[in-house]
Amino acid sequence: MAKKPENGLLIDYEYCTGCFACQVACSQEHHWPAGMGGIQVLEIVQNLPKGKAYLNFLPFPTELCILCFPRTKKGLEPACVQHCMAGVITYGSLPDLAGELGKKPRMVLWSPR
């Protein structure tokens, strides 16, 4: 039976600028070659009425995200969390993060593993 998820990443995507720091931080930390990595940043352009649009970025943890186990074990923040230029990624236990999730809109809680 698969292990139950305990920890996750809470993303405040209202302020994600699409800067890709998280993506390269993960590649550096875990030595992923270009094209692989634990997190991918997606650009979402949503059409709005009257010809308008809204631009969002959303970091998505992939199959390769190990929640930086070797770092968190040592008490360090995951590489993407520390380096996120907008400070929008929080690492923690799922119940704690779920509590945070209700505090403001435009957030998403990922439980990658």
Binding site: C19, F20, A21, C84, M85
Partner: peptide, 16 residues
């Protein structure tokens, strides 16, 4: 993390 400019943050280009 102790630097007043970036507080531990870093961009993609520096991380590469």
């Amino acid at each position: 993390p102790n630097h007043p400019w970036n507080q531990g943050r870093l961009c993609a280009r520096a991380l590469a």
